[in-house]
Write a protein that binds this DNA or RNA. Sequence first.
DNA 1: ACTGGCACTCACTAGACTTGAGTGCCAACG
DNA 2: CGTTGGCACTCAAGTCTAGTGAGTGCCAGT
Lengths: 347, 347
Amino acid sequence: MARRQKSPVASGDLDARKATILQAVVTEHVDTAAPVGSSAVAAATDLDVSPATVRSEMVALEREGYLAQPHTSAGRVPTDKGYRYFVDHLERGAVGAAQQTRVRDFFAHVRGEMEDVLEQTSKLLSQLTSHTSVVVGAGHSRASVLSAQLVNLDAHHHLLVTVFSDGTVTKHSVADAPGASAGEVAEASRQLNALLIGTTLGSRIQVPSRADAVARLVREATSALHEAAPTIEGEQVYIGGSSRVAEAFDGVETVRAVLSILEQELVVVSLIEDILDADVSVAIGSENGLEPLSACAVIVAPVTLEGETVGALGLLGPTRMRYREVMATAQAVSDELTRHFGGEPGA
Amino acid sequence: MARRQKSPVASGDLDARKATILQAVVTEHVDTAAPVGSSAVAAATDLDVSPATVRSEMVALEREGYLAQPHTSAGRVPTDKGYRYFVDHLERGAVGAAQQTRVRDFFAHVRGEMEDVLEQTSKLLSQLTSHTSVVVGAGHSRASVLSAQLVNLDAHHHLLVTVFSDGTVTKHSVADAPGASAGEVAEASRQLNALLIGTTLGSRIQVPSRADAVARLVREATSALHEAAPTIEGEQVYIGGSSRVAEAFDGVETVRAVLSILEQELVVVSLIEDILDADVSVAIGSENGLEPLSACAVIVAPVTLEGETVGALGLLGPTRMRYREVMATAQAVSDELTRHFGGEPGA
DNA sequence: ACTGGCACTCACTAGACTTGAGTGCCAACG
DNA sequence: CGTTGGCACTCAAGTCTAGTGAGTGCCAGT
């Protein structure tokens, strides 16, 4: 197998000049949105070589799959693989001072519950980057019950309100056809509280099997809670700046397809999680596995709390994207978000 | 003033033949998306007149503002005013049997809290109509407190959980720097419950001015609740099928503008409420008052509970829309939704 | 009042031509 | 041998020029 390859470099890496040229093509293409020609590259780099030299290198880069030509007599455009190389060899820059203060300001002034903060954050992200943003708050499958309470709404309807240790609150309506007395509801509430405190959604609990009104209410309420468990454990998703999708692509059909994906929260969540699990911070084009997103790049960053990943944020734009800036912004917001929740648990 | 007008009809109404022609133009244009010519109209109607006759009528309709010509030698296209006439003189048809059963089925099987139902409904609406849908759940400014409870999260953080008579539940974090004992928190919770039950968000309540931990907690909690009041009272908005926007318009810029409006929930809510207040069920083009929506029509229907409007649903599409079908669907869903909540209060 | 006839308008399409950015190849050079 | 200037070639995009046809407005005849 050895010596079979003519090129002296492994396919995973490029010599310095090819790398410089590839970077120049990416940078230029991101700026202009047009195919990049050899002379433009020669002018943009400090290689001091002629366009002809650049051309022969570009032929090689195309053969190796980093560049592509829209048609015979046009300049080159980066492929997904080209972007991938670019991103992998990007020195992570810091976010600009103006952005940094905007992010700081935001987290200094934002108030309210975690849900509100996440939603606001998604708006911030899309404003800062001009891309569509996704913020995912992790489910609370491991959170335990701090308090459970049955509240009487009217003759035949009650509400089970449950507070979890991670600060989330859920409600479940409990129908009660025969209708229990106020005292019985209060007693059921007291029993439910005692029964559920400390448990998690996964744990099985012992419900009373008696036939009286109180026991009936307790059974109804716990089953409502556990039936809904899969839904509750599901992550919350906040999407900001979906109108940016229309700016990013000029084909209406592409816009429709991307928006359609964004509407499916489950798909979005699993996309983000897949990227997060693969321990890369960017998925480019076909890498994200969804055909309609083949023209998109997704940048993700985790949000951690006490070392554990409790959420993630994502930015979705065209593969032709300012990776450095957007990645730096994602990192900065992720850091601040982590710090924000770290310093203010449960809020 | 009398006799000045050559035409015998007031500008608000049209003679039978003009009306028929206008209807034919609208129907045809909705189908084909292209300007409609005189011969097409002659063929589509049962007027038994020649295209030339239709032409002269169309000239009149254009002069009166119901039709417009994209350019001199093209067919006619309805103006907003033309659509308005069409809609005003539309005999309300019933929804198709297939749709009817789909709606019935949906409400027969849907479960969960009101929020979930509304969200699901918005998806249903956009599926049924192929347009973007908006479902607005009214705020609960007039709902009274059924229960208030302070739950201890950790040493310095508590959560005020409030249940309202309309079945909504809110939470507010309460920071407590000095840190109260478990007993003090329980006592504060008891006092808060007594203090808040029966009040509405608007009403002022008497808070204890003592300096002890319990009084401090009560003060903190009530102020957190009342500070957030404007936000809580705000309506919930669920938008379904935003990708449909991309199908409805072919200009990317239009798509962007419309999506951008949809992102601003406050704007959407006030748009829907304005249309609802004006007691019309449709706003066409410029009627909706938002310049970016000048190519859109919005169809609304109220959701009532015990005679009171507690929400609304809206459908947003291009002015070139199948008004009859969409309006019938909106009506059907609105009816079922009203019945659903009517028979199952608080759920 | 309606109609058929007719000249006219004008967006749209197709084909021919031009332009120019960019390529691939090659011979010459250090 | 890598690099370079030169050169012929390619091809999308722009510009022109008809040609086509759907549709109009007008008018004279019934």
